[in-house]
Design a protein around this nucleic acid. Structure first.
Lengths: 221, 221
DNA sequence: TCCATTTTGTTCTCTCGTTCACAAACTCCT
DNA sequence: AGGAGTTTGTGAACGAGAGAACAAAATGGA
């Protein structure tokens, strides 16, 4: 069950590598826009901010898309990574919670350009529904099930206050969403098989504060 | 140079542990607000969404703050973690780039409540300066050096478009900022000694898409 | 054609992080 | 006072990730 030998082998790519593939993809796009058609692992690695050995090892999990002595074809590699990640297809996304953050997310241009399409903005606050943000009308949260069913949404974004987040997640899971991006500062509990990724501003700041404090201590010690 | 035996020993806490301490801190705050005065590692671990053995090992890097057979005193542990992270002190922060995201960040309540204080909002766009966001006036980006010098700012937040981010980072580093939280979708290059943490919406979505695609493949295979 | 040069793909080693399992230490009940 | 029952703190085994180093494969010039 773990080994497949077909040409379309579903190799299991390490999680750390998966997290870097989008970075490589962006670096390749930048290179392509600058008119570069070929690059070495060294070039791409420095554009992505990683070690070149690590880059080559990461790419080797996808297959053997480079040419020894030459390097990588930018467009070809870009397509291969995009395909591996899944951004060659179209991913409908719902965003729940249209506060300041929800607005910022709805207006974020990186969505459309990378295979993600915001099919609905939802908010429990009835006074917000009807409002239009980034060309999409805000609808009541209770429309969630209809929208998910209609568009086949698999990815949900939670941008609500912390107290509402678990309820939203439960509803999302209940109607078939299996990947959640959570901006609310709460630990979500979801059944196995549902992926949750968390983006938490204050945690990031606190990590910086820790290191900052240590730097300061070193100076005065 | 690496070993210190004083009571105030600066143990080197693993990076993975540092990243979890803020999660524990938040879980403890929630417990305290619920009126809980004591908790076991099992309780806290489930509130934080981690394994209890990992939690105990993480806490053991800080010291021995629990009581065997009893558990941890919520308030005491909370203080110890806050002190270790450095959020018992006040951290002045500047935010550069007052677009949708900058607005959301400026309004984010988690700043103040956790020891971070937004001392300035800066934007290169002159038409935005003078505007007031979350009680702080938007000022021109060129005021950066003055503000950093005046308030002793060590942490900067970049919420500009990608093209501007590297320039902003250079200016920040130039005037003494040594920790940067970067929301722009770009790899920043900074000198050694400067910490950069990156928050990138579209990378997170792409990671989810990858796993989502694999789930779908498994079903149809 | 053959050799020097370049650059990839991969093996090996080392470090870091996670989890298990258990001794040490504390409480409570008899 | 002593033993049963909890719960922490940590040593040790295990697994994953990072980086060095090198063989394999391509190019280009003589």
């Amino acid at each position: 069950m773990t080994t497949r030998s077909s040409a379309e082998a579903a190799r299991d790519i390490p999680e750390a590598t998966v997290a870097r593939l989008p970075v490589y993809l962006r670096a390749l796009t930048t290179l392509a826009e600058a008119g570069t058609s070929t690059c070495s692992s060294e070039d791409l690695a420095s554009a992505a901010g990683v070690n070149s050995a690590k880059l080559r090892k990461d790419l080797s999990y996808l297959g053997s898309y480079g040419t020894r002595g030459v390097g990588y074809d930018v467009d070809y590699l870009r397509y291969q990574i995009a395909r591996e990640i899944g951004v060659t297809q179209d991913w409908p996304v719902v965003i729940v919670g249209i506060g300041n953050l929800g607005h910022a997310l709805a207006n974020f241009s990186g969505f459309r350009s990378r295979g993600f399409r915001v099919v609905a903005l939802l908010d429990a606050d009835a006074t917000r529904t009807g409002e239009e943000v980034a060309g999409v009308r805000v609808r009541p949260f209770d429309d969630l099930e209809d929208i998910v069913g209609e568009h086949g949404v698999a990815i949900g974004v939670i941008a609500t206050p912390a107290v509402a987040a678990q309820d939203v997640a439960d509803r999302m899971v209940g109607c078939g969403i299996s990947s959640i991006l959570n901006f609310a500062p709460t630990v979500l509990s979801v059944p196995a098989g549902v992926d949750v990724r968390k983006v938490d501003l204050s945690i990031e700041l606190q990590i910086l504060a820790y290191h900052e404090q240590r730097k300061a201590q070193g100076e005065t010690a």
